[in-house]
Nucleic acid binder design. Sequence first.
DNA 1: GTTAAAAATGCAATAAAATGGCAAAAAGGA
DNA 2: TCCTTTTTGCCATTTTATTGCATTTTTAAC
Lengths: 141, 141
Amino acid sequence: MTDPDLSRRIRDAGGRVTTARLAVLRCLADADEPLTPDEVLEHLARNSDHVPDRVTIYRAIDWLAVHGLVRRLATVGRAARYEPVEDREAHAHFQCRRCAQTRCLPAPTPPLPPLPPGYAAERIELVIHGLCAACRAGDTP
Amino acid sequence: MTDPDLSRRIRDAGGRVTTARLAVLRCLADADEPLTPDEVLEHLARNSDHVPDRVTIYRAIDWLAVHGLVRRLATVGRAARYEPVEDREAHAHFQCRRCAQTRCLPAPTPPLPPLPPGYAAERIELVIHGLCAACRAGDTP
DNA sequence: GTTAAAAATGCAATAAAATGGCAAAAAGGA
DNA sequence: TCCTTTTTGCCATTTTATTGCATTTTTAAC
């Protein structure tokens, strides 16, 4: 997705197109796995000249999440992870219990189970826990 | 599950049966939804005379998790949530995006999607995101 | 292009959740 | 009961995230 496209998405969501928002969205869109705010910061520190403050990253991600351009995932690790909301959708996430790596897996969304009365479902997430290839190759289970 | 049963599970896992471990396991087993370490502490503070230190709770939960008596869930909120590992298994979790309440839902475990080579799946978790009845009843979406 | 209002950012301080080190206390077998 | 090992409590520290406020940037109007 090109920068003008991303800018447009931000403007359509009713916000100002700022360097930070664009850079964060760009970063998440380019990454092939969900990132933590700190990972986003690292990426920007490596690939941009002007690196936004950590707080700005948090606020940009939060704004993007509230406006539906980005999604916060359920994670087992300590830090939150975010991925861009795109069309490809319908995928699951694998989480390594050793290194906390999180990656996307192609998988159909399972059917929605019945909810208690009054509850409203908005999204369904499938998390596969286990060991990634690298961690399984290394010793200690 | 009775206390002797829980003690037995701890001893069988190869650890000492301590007040803290027993109390934490008891607390998680009695709760009808997954709890955070702080919630466990609150429960114990209300229902016991000797309240273990917060750090002890963390360590007890961790020990129970490492030894398979308790399970850490994937959460969207900041704090980790744990549930006891029992037989009833095969259930999903609903997470309210407003109040962060997490509750168990009866739901079949979906089929395991194909993993990249070298990856090993150990558990599959289904998280339903949405609004609980209470939060939906209250105003602002 | 200026300019002014509104929105976003940077910085410092603070909060929340979790972890590490170490001496004191408790478990469990002899 | 005594001894060894494991666990606990307390304090300090780390990691992750949030808040307040002055300054800067964005954007729309001129």
